[in-house]
Design a protein around this nucleic acid. Structure first.
Lengths: 141, 141
DNA sequence: CTACAAGTTCAAGTTAACTTGAAGTCAAGC
DNA sequence: GCTTGACTTCAAGTTAACTTGAACTTGTAG
């Protein structure tokens, strides 16, 4: 069993953040007789996944929802993690696709010269995007 | 010259946000005799770039810094925007690279079976990353 | 036994990027 | 002239994800 400082050091996540995650139900701890937190090794993997997911762009709430799908009664198996992993990989691919779309918008609108005309959908997306809602949202879908 | 509501509708950015951007020096406006804001058409392009940059992941402060490099004395030319565009495209590529790194971490660490051993750099990055600083930062560089 | 480092809780502070509300001004239609 | 809607400023509120501080307890080294 690890102390909060052990976990903090090994995961790179501050103790205060670990307490915060616990409060939000993302991780759990047992308590020593003293009231001090004690963590099983498996918490490190859980935390690593939390950090991954954050970098992918998930909120703590979403992450909590995902982690809640893991079995509560046992240490998650490779298969369990694999399912999560798959969903998150999908998210990554979506985000990459969005970034590529943004890049196209950026280079095409410069390259094609449409920056010189007012009807350019970059400069003036409401005109082009129409039903997709107002504004640059056109590019953000 | 456009009113704030015109600009808001055409850009998809709320009036309150436009005032906020002005306060932060990201955009500018002239005033009608009444004190009401009046915007030149060119502000739409500027706002579109702001929205783009935000989706890329730049903070308003960074965006302000970039926009400050545009000429203040005239409406930016295609060449001016192109320079910005190039820098932001670079940012996009970096972010895509990071996401691909995250995806590798996610699938490799599941796929290779290292999730079953404690020395896995995903579950326990401090051990592997060493000098790169503590924790999952290893994957985030 | 005495330090003092590490842990605890709980409330309040922080930053980004806005939004909301209050209180008042301005413009257009009837 | 009056109402209504758009506009103004300025202060304060909001959400996420933590951090910091206060006040106090526990564990450990000498």
């Amino acid at each position: 069993m690890l102390t909060i400082t052990d976990v903090s050091r090994r995961s790179g996540v501050a103790s205060s953040a670990l307490r915060f995650y616990e409060e939000r139900g993302l991780i759990a701890s047992e308590r020593a007789g003293s009231g001090h937190r004690r963590y099983p090794r498996s918490v490190l993997r859980r935390i690593a996944f939390i950090v991954f997911a954050q970098r992918i762009g998930l909120t703590l709430e979403e992450i909590g929802g995902e982690l809640a799908k893991l079995p509560a009664d046992r240490v998650p198996s490779r298969r369990d993690w694999s399912r999560l992993s798959g969903r998150w990989t999908k998210r990554i691919d979506q985000r990459i696709a969005e970034l590529q779309r943004l890049r196209s918008g950026l280079t095409e609108c410069i390259g094609c010269g449409c920056l010189s005309i007012d009807r350019c959908s970059l400069a003036n997306p409401a005109d082009m995007a129409g039903r997709k809602g107002p504004g640059p949202r056109y590019w953000l879908g």
